[in-house]
Design a protein around this nucleic acid. Structure first.
Length: 113
DNA sequence: CGTGTGACACGTA
DNA sequence: TTACGTGCCACAC
């Protein structure tokens, strides 16, 4: 089974839950939202850790709304993700492999505090 | 303990 | 546009 939920992981999943249909956030966006870097120093966990959380617990949330900063979906999930994008009207730059979300329009502007 | 790996991001070529 | 190199850091061995 999936490992017990630690604090960081539950926060990541909460953020993912807050992304509305048709919008997306990158791993880095989520890391920053959770306070990854403040000013010029590292005060939290980064994009790779967000990716790890998604690989482990992603099945419990809308994983297709968390993608790479360049707009490409999580590795190996292109087809699955595309179905969701078409269904919820996510702005796309390319609906054919490599599937790419139009980040400029689909990015969900999370603002801390 | 040290090493390698990965659902990352960014700068550079 | 794609392709590398580098920084990053939790985890599994």
């Amino acid at each position: 089974m999936t490992p017990p939920l630690d604090d960081f992981s539950s926060r990541v999943l909460d953020v993912v839950d807050s992304i509305p249909a048709g919008r997306v956030m990158s791993y880095g966006d989520i890391a920053e939202y959770l306070g990854w870097v403040r000013g010029d120093k590292q005060v939290g966990l980064g994009p790779r850790q967000v990716g790890r959380v998604m690989s482990v617990y992603g099945g419990a949330v809308a994983w297709w709304r968390v993608i790479h900063s360049d707009g490409t979906p999580a590795p190996g999930h292109d087809s699955r993700a595309l179905q969701h994008y078409l269904a919820e009207g996510t702005p796309l730059r390319s609906a054919r492999p490599p599937v790419r979300v139009d980040m400029r329009r689909a990015r969900w502007p999370a603002t801390l505090r």
